[in-house]
């Protein structure tokens, strides 16, 4: 207890320590983590299913095997309809808003915890890093599950529309037909879905976490949710 010595500077914590604390937090709040993650899963599942469905539609049209029950009446020569574009844009918006909302809620209900950690000597950056790690992991795992579910949904829908032909022309890899638009392929769509889910989760949580970490602890702890 060198009480009269000048006040020293707070040290940075090793990364492993942050990793351990954030995983412990996820594990113990498993129920709540699942709900937050489910928000991400649903958003990404919706987006990926619409997107994959569209990829499948284009691939089968390119192959000359039109759907027996083609519901897209406005299909252009190049195989992509304005309706498809609208659907993708809409699902992207739903996905962004849904994930941002889940993460905002999850962080806001922990303002008091953030204030307490600062009372115990946590640096602002450490608090933000904890939330970044937690949400990054939640975002990635939620989005991966969502992307796989979404793909499964799109495949089932495709089977209904195209029958087993679907598997002969399944757009797994990126391709560029001579006269058609670039096709991303299902694998790239899944990857993009995962990355998007993770980025949205990290942005959605680190912004409020950063705001809470900047507040004086007294104010953060006063916040009622």
């Amino acid at each position: 207890m060198n009480q009269r010595a000048p006040i020293e500077e707070q040290i940075d914590l090793p990364f492993v320590e942050s990793l351990r604390i954030s995983f412990q937090s996820l594990k113990i709040r498993f129920g709540r983590s699942i709900i937050t993650t489910a928000g991400i899963t649903l958003g990404i599942a919706f987006l990926v299913s619409v997107w994959t469905n569209n990829e499948i539609g284009i691939a089968l049209q390119e192959s000359g095997r039109q759907s027996t029950i083609n519901t897209f009446e406005e299909t252009t020569e190049k195989g992509i309809s304005t309706k498809d574009i609208w659907l993708i844009v809409m699902s992207l918006i739903v996905c962004v808003v849904g994930i941002a909302n889940s993460m905002l809620m999850a962080v806001t209900e922990r303002f008091r915890e953030i204030g307490t950690m600062k009372c115990l000597g946590a640096l602002d950056g450490f608090v933000v890093r904890l939330f970044l790690l937690e949400s990054g992991f939640q975002g990635f795992s939620g989005a991966l599950i969502g992307a796989l579910l979404g793909t499964l949904g799109a495949v089932l829908l495709g089977l209904k529309d195209y029958g087993l032909d679907l598997f002969f022309y399944f757009p797994l890899l990126p391709s560029r037909p001579e006269d058609g638009p670039m096709q991303l392929g299902v694998i790239v769509v899944i990857l993009l879905g995962c990355v998007l889910g993770m980025i949205l989760a990290v942005i959605g949580s680190s912004f409020p976490a950063w705001r809470a970490a900047k507040l004086p602890p007294a104010e953060a702890m006063r916040t009622e949710v």
Binding site: I7, E8, E9, Q10, C119, L120, G121, L123, D124
Partner: peptide, 17 residues
């Protein structure tokens, strides 16, 4: 007059809440 890091260290070492 303390920096952010000094305040964090102060809360950590000097005070118990």
């Amino acid at each position: 007059h303390l920096s952010q890091r000094q305040i964090a260290a102060f809360r950590c070492h000097r005070v118990g809440y």
